[in-house]
């Protein structure tokens, strides 16, 4: 019987490896692994870091990148309370309408509004960025293999191009971008923002913070999910043990009969 369970696990591992292989097929570059607060089955988001990351997004990234799947109210997941969210969203200008006269109008934001997009449409975004389209960042960590490490590597991957490497006008050399040429100029510089909580805004700090924020934005349910997972799996393990011994007891007469 032990042998059979081993078999089961064995099969499962094989299928998992198979799944892993198809993931591996899409990753050609290895990204340096960072120590993320949210990795592992007990990992949670470092809220202070994510709040700083939101500040980096707001002051740096949001000039070009939208996050249209997020509303300001979602930021309660980073620890902001209702009053803070009302104040925060009111700082943004939302184009709403039509009103009773059939006109569009501009009003202060509300927590229920989605994040303001930097451009009205994709064409406008491309026109302003030399033909390149700054992708929406709502899901960016989930939409890239090894997303968090990739983003962190990318943000710190701007290097001097090798002499024989031709960098065209409007493109930038980045060791971690596929093809090594990226349309986005280096976004993060030391002291690019002044953190509200007084943390020193080094390049490394900013890139870690904004990655933590974007990881949260991609999987806002993650903490709930893992917490519920621990409960469910603990229950199932206990249940499996009870079921196992019930089975043993029920089967005892059959196994004994000679």
């Amino acid at each position: 019987m032990c042998k059979n369970i081993t078999f089961k696990i064995y099969f499962f591992v094989i299928f998992l490896c198979l799944g892993k292989t198809c993931l591996a097929a899409s990753t050609d570059i290895e990204y340096p692994s960072q120590d993320w607060s949210f990795s592992g089955i007990f990992g949670t988001f470092d809220k202070a870091s994510a709040q700083r990351g939101f500040q980096v997004y707001r002051e740096v990234c949001s000039g070009c990148h939208g996050m249209k799947l997020l509303s300001y109210r979602h930021l309660s997941g980073l620890g902001y309370n209702n009053e803070e969210l009302k104040a925060l969203s009111a700082q943004f200008e939302i184009t709403d309408g039509p009103n009773d006269d059939g006109e569009s109008f501009v009003r202060p934001g509300r927590p229920s509004d989605t994040f303001v997009s930097p451009y009205p449409n994709e064409q406008a975004a491309r026109a302003a960025n030399g033909g390149a389209y700054p992708p929406d960042l709502s899901l960016i960590v989930k939409a890239r293999a090894d997303g968090a490490n990739y983003l962190h590597a990318l943000l710190s991957g701007y290097k001097e191009a090798p002499k024989d490497f031709n960098v065209p006008e409007g493109m930038y050399y980045n060791t971690y971008y596929p093809g090594k040429l990226i349309g986005m100029p280096q976004p993060i510089y030391e002291d690019g923002v002044e953190y509200a909580d007084g943390t020193k805004a080094s390049e490394l700090q900013m890139s870690k913070d904004v990655t933590t924020f974007l990881a949260w934005a991609s999987e806002p349910e993650m903490e709930n999910r893992k917490r519920l997972g621990v409960t469910v799996i603990s229950f199932l393990i206990v249940f499996s043990i009870l079921a196992y011994f019930s089975m043993k007891q029920i089967w005892a007469p059959i196994k004994k009969k000679v």
């Binding site: 089955i41 519920l228 469910v232 199932l236 249940f239 029920i250």
Partner: peptide, 20 residues
């Protein structure tokens, strides 16, 4: 009972994938 035991082991592995 044997299927129930099998199901509980399966559900544990399944839950590990879903939650983690």
């Amino acid at each position: 009972i044997k299927d129930l035991f099998g199901l509980s082991v399966f559900a544990t592995i399944f839950a590990a994938a879903v939650f983690f």
